[in-house]
Nucleic acid binder design. Structure first.
Lengths: 196, 196
DNA sequence: TCATTAAACTAATAAGTGTTAGTTTTGCAA
DNA sequence: TTGCAAAACTAACACTTATTAGTTTAATGA
């Protein structure tokens, strides 16, 4: 009868959620069984239900925690009295650091949100659209202030949001590049381009 | 007793594979059952096995078809006697057009390759690493020729390959932006940056 | 020491999984 | 019209799935 050891400053539910994040990332949500999750903890599957509500609840917790982190961060950045370019830099930097520090959770939120059940699915997409819309507004302001060239704001936002996901692949390869170098390269690329 | 109608210039296996691509994209490979796939065609699940080998074979077919298309295209571009910047432009353009013209297949190859079984999984990753390596070489050449600034080639490649995936999101929203505008915006962003 | 509670266990359920075997139907060529 | 092959069908198999009910064990506090 192994016990689920709660990580310090966290409940047992948190410990299970963390393990789930790792498995959901490696194998996908649908391909991860509760028996596998339980085994990775060292317990029977049914024992998990003393701590969590359901498998789907685990996914909900993960997705909305990540979504909320991004929303809160964007609100902070919006409030600052800095240029558009600096705001974009901070947004990009936050995305990269989230992926570096919370790899499993962010990956799962990015890849497995489709498996959310209603009404959580609609809710998640609403939050996502709102986030993208606020980034579009930042870029529109930058164009108006002539800080940015006259690109299509929606395309630019989706390009940036996709580009920062390169950190996913970067984790896969265990290159010894420190996070600051990674950050500055990606930010420079997305803001200034590749041309010499 | 409904019949599987083969699309013109294609076998019935092709028709099933195409339907599978759509479902695998919408629901994920693991969450799509053979009974669902069969129903979407209008046939019993067991009837599918008159035409295909297995569910996993469908995924293999999709993933390697896409991987091969990209490999072939890159070989063509490498052969051309054009500048590094133009080569990169053509690579980016090909990615975007593949995603626009073969949305389901490319999406599935990008998102569901993890569900491949060995030895196909290792094979796919080898092909992918080789593709990325060849792009890294193009960028290294561009730096040597002083066409490109002195960025980290590996980071640049992964940033580009991630950025072109924005087309995935773009399909989701049914904005009325034509593909040429989409292409030129993304290429300009990745080559020249955002700054005015 | 004893009662309480948290959290593990075993066992079972009902539904769904990919796949196979065997049979029947269909459409075409001779 | 008959014979044949392609391709549909039904039925079943052998597992696996998430989850629940009921029970036992371990830890805690009085």
């Amino acid at each position: 009868m192994a016990k689920i050891l709660a990580s310090k400053n966290g409940t047992k539910k948190d410990a299970i959620t963390q393990k789930a994040a790792g498995l959901f990332r490696k194998k996908g949500f649908a391909s991860t069984s509760m028996r596998e999750l339980a085994e990775s903890i060292g317990v029977e599957a049914s024992s998990l239900y003393n701590h969590i509500g359901s498998k789907n609840e685990l996914l909900q917790t993960l997705c909305f925690k990540v979504a909320n982190d991004f929303t809160v961060s964007l609100t902070e950045i919006e409030k600052k009295g800095i240029s558009t370019v600096l705001k974009l830099q901070e947004v990009i930097r936050f995305h990269i650091e989230m992926m570096l520090n919370n790899h499993d959770e962010v990956y799962v939120a990015n890849h497995e949100w489709k498996q959310l059940q209603e009404p959580f699915l609609s809710n998640f997409l609403l939050q996502r659209n709102s986030y993208e819309g606020r980034l579009v507004e930042i870029i529109k302001t930058g164009i108006k202030k002539k800080e940015l060239k006259n690109i299509h704001p929606n395309i630019a936002v989706l390009t940036i949001l996709s580009a920062v996901r390169s950190v996913e692949f970067w984790q896969r390869k265990k290159n010894n590049i420190n996070s600051k170098e990674l950050e500055s390269n990606i930010i420079d690329h997305l803001i200034n381009g590749l041309i010499k």
